[in-house]
Amino acid sequence: MKLLIDMNLSPRWVEFLASEGIAAVHWSQVGDPKAPDETIMRHAAQAGFIVFTNDLDFSAILAATHGGKPSVAQLRADDVRPATVGRYVVQALKLLVAELEAGALISIEPERTRVRLLPL
Protein backbone atom coordinates (compact mmCIF):
# COMPACT_ATOMS: atom_id res chain seq x y z
CA MET A 1 0.00 0.00 0.00
CA LYS A 2 1.28 3.44 -0.91
CA LEU A 3 -0.53 6.70 -0.28
CA LEU A 4 -0.63 9.91 -2.27
CA ILE A 5 -1.34 12.68 0.23
CA ASP A 6 -3.50 15.51 -1.03
CA MET A 7 -2.50 19.16 -0.73
CA ASN A 8 -5.07 19.80 2.01
CA LEU A 9 -3.08 17.61 4.40
CA SER A 10 0.32 18.46 5.81
CA PRO A 11 3.50 16.98 4.34
CA ARG A 12 4.23 15.88 7.93
CA TRP A 13 1.97 12.91 7.20
CA VAL A 14 4.70 11.41 4.98
CA GLU A 15 7.15 11.01 7.85
CA PHE A 16 4.46 9.94 10.30
CA LEU A 17 3.14 7.21 8.00
CA ALA A 18 6.67 6.04 7.18
CA SER A 19 7.29 5.58 10.91
CA GLU A 20 4.28 3.23 10.89
CA GLY A 21 5.53 1.26 7.89
CA ILE A 22 3.21 2.90 5.34
CA ALA A 23 4.74 4.34 2.17
CA ALA A 24 3.49 7.82 1.31
CA VAL A 25 4.33 10.80 -0.85
CA HIS A 26 2.83 14.28 -0.69
CA TRP A 27 1.32 15.61 -3.93
CA SER A 28 3.60 18.67 -3.72
CA GLN A 29 6.57 16.30 -4.23
CA VAL A 30 5.25 14.80 -7.49
CA GLY A 31 2.88 17.30 -9.09
CA ASP A 32 1.73 20.87 -9.46
CA PRO A 33 0.33 22.05 -6.10
CA LYS A 34 -2.43 23.88 -8.00
CA ALA A 35 -3.47 20.84 -10.07
CA PRO A 36 -7.17 19.99 -10.08
CA ASP A 37 -8.38 16.98 -8.14
CA GLU A 38 -9.01 15.08 -11.38
CA THR A 39 -5.29 15.29 -12.20
CA ILE A 40 -4.38 13.95 -8.78
CA MET A 41 -6.87 11.09 -9.19
CA ARG A 42 -5.53 10.23 -12.64
CA HIS A 43 -1.93 10.19 -11.39
CA ALA A 44 -2.88 8.06 -8.39
CA ALA A 45 -4.69 5.53 -10.58
CA GLN A 46 -1.82 5.29 -13.06
CA ALA A 47 0.87 4.97 -10.39
CA GLY A 48 -1.02 2.62 -8.07
CA PHE A 49 -1.54 5.07 -5.20
CA ILE A 50 -4.38 5.39 -2.71
CA VAL A 51 -5.41 9.03 -2.32
CA PHE A 52 -5.37 10.27 1.28
CA THR A 53 -7.36 13.48 1.66
CA ASN A 54 -9.56 15.68 3.81
CA ASP A 55 -11.47 16.80 0.70
CA LEU A 56 -14.96 15.47 -0.15
CA ASP A 57 -14.43 16.25 -3.85
CA PHE A 58 -12.59 12.97 -4.35
CA SER A 59 -15.58 10.90 -3.32
CA ALA A 60 -17.74 13.01 -5.62
CA ILE A 61 -15.37 12.27 -8.50
CA LEU A 62 -15.58 8.53 -7.77
CA ALA A 63 -19.38 8.69 -7.67
CA ALA A 64 -19.67 10.72 -10.87
CA THR A 65 -17.27 8.54 -12.84
CA HIS A 66 -18.24 5.18 -11.30
CA GLY A 67 -14.50 4.72 -10.90
CA GLY A 68 -12.97 1.55 -9.57
CA LYS A 69 -9.56 3.04 -8.86
CA PRO A 70 -7.86 4.74 -7.19
CA SER A 71 -9.06 4.01 -3.70
CA VAL A 72 -9.62 7.08 -1.54
CA ALA A 73 -9.13 7.41 2.21
CA GLN A 74 -10.92 10.49 3.52
CA LEU A 75 -9.97 11.89 6.89
CA ARG A 76 -13.06 13.41 8.51
CA ALA A 77 -11.92 15.36 11.56
CA ASP A 78 -11.60 18.96 12.67
CA ASP A 79 -7.97 18.53 13.67
CA VAL A 80 -6.15 16.65 10.90
CA ARG A 81 -2.64 16.70 12.37
CA PRO A 82 -0.85 13.35 12.55
CA ALA A 83 -0.15 13.86 16.25
CA THR A 84 -3.89 14.14 16.92
CA VAL A 85 -5.55 11.60 14.61
CA GLY A 86 -2.63 9.60 13.26
CA ARG A 87 -3.32 6.49 15.30
CA TYR A 88 -6.90 6.31 13.97
CA VAL A 89 -5.65 6.68 10.41
CA VAL A 90 -2.99 4.00 10.76
CA GLN A 91 -5.40 1.61 12.46
CA ALA A 92 -7.99 2.03 9.68
CA LEU A 93 -5.44 1.73 6.86
CA LYS A 94 -3.91 -1.44 8.28
CA LEU A 95 -7.31 -2.99 8.98
CA LEU A 96 -8.62 -2.27 5.47
CA VAL A 97 -5.59 -3.12 3.29
CA ALA A 98 -7.46 -5.69 1.20
CA GLU A 99 -10.40 -3.37 0.54
CA LEU A 100 -8.13 -0.46 -0.38
CA GLU A 101 -6.09 -2.60 -2.75
CA ALA A 102 -9.27 -3.91 -4.41
CA GLY A 103 -10.88 -0.46 -4.69
CA ALA A 104 -12.68 1.35 -1.88
CA LEU A 105 -13.68 4.68 -0.44
CA ILE A 106 -13.07 4.80 3.28
CA SER A 107 -14.02 7.61 5.63
CA ILE A 108 -11.88 7.76 8.75
CA GLU A 109 -13.25 9.53 11.81
CA PRO A 110 -11.86 9.34 15.34
CA GLU A 111 -14.90 7.34 16.49
CA ARG A 112 -15.44 5.11 13.44
CA THR A 113 -14.41 4.17 9.93
CA ARG A 114 -16.84 3.56 7.08
CA VAL A 115 -16.09 1.53 3.94
CA ARG A 116 -17.72 1.59 0.51
CA LEU A 117 -16.42 -0.71 -2.18
CA LEU A 118 -15.88 0.75 -5.65
CA PRO A 119 -17.46 1.52 -8.00
CA LEU A 120 -19.96 3.63 -6.09
Rank of each mutant, 00 (worst) to 15 (best):
M1D: 02
L3S: 04
L4M: 10
L4W: 03
I5T: 11
I5P: 02
D6E: 13
D6G: 04
D6Q: 06
M7N: 14
N8V: 13
N8H: 14
N8T: 14
N8G: 15
L9G: 08
S10C: 13
S10W: 07
S10H: 08
S10A: 12
P11H: 07
P11V: 06
W13N: 09
V14T: 08
F16L: 02
L17E: 05
A18P: 05
A18G: 10
E20S: 08
A24D: 05
V25M: 03
V25F: 03
V25G: 03
H26G: 07
Q29E: 13
V30Y: 01
V30C: 02
V30P: 00
P33I: 09
K34N: 13
A35V: 09
P36T: 14
P36V: 13
E38I: 09
T39H: 12
I40K: 02
M41L: 13
M41I: 11
M41R: 06
M41W: 02
M41F: 04
R42F: 04
R42E: 15
H43N: 10
A44I: 03
A44S: 09
A45W: 01
A45G: 08
A47I: 06
G48E: 10
G48V: 00
G48F: 00
F49Q: 00
F49A: 00
F49P: 00
I50L: 01
I50Y: 01
I50Q: 00
F52T: 11
T53M: 07
N54H: 14
N54I: 10
D55G: 06
D55I: 05
L56K: 12
L56T: 14
L56N: 14
D57R: 01
S59R: 11
A60H: 15
A60Q: 15
I61Y: 07
L62F: 10
L62A: 14
L62S: 11
L62N: 10
A63E: 15
H66Y: 15
H66S: 15
H66L: 15
G67E: 14
G68M: 02
K69L: 04
V72I: 13
V72Q: 01
Q74E: 15
R76E: 15
R76L: 15
A77L: 07
D79C: 08
D79N: 12
V80M: 09
R81W: 13
R81M: 13
P82H: 05
V85K: 02
V85S: 05
R87V: 09
Y88F: 09
V89A: 07
V89F: 00
V90C: 04
Q91P: 06
A92G: 12
K94C: 07
L95Y: 11
L95A: 10
L95K: 11
L96F: 06
V97M: 04
E101N: 12
E101I: 04
A102F: 05
G103R: 01
G103D: 05
A104N: 08
A104E: 08
A104R: 02
L105R: 03
I106E: 08
I106A: 06
S107C: 13
I108G: 00
I108S: 01
I108N: 02
P110S: 10
E111M: 03
R112W: 07
R116F: 09
L117P: 02
L118V: 10
L118Y: 08
L118G: 06
L118D: 07
P119F: 05
P119C: 09
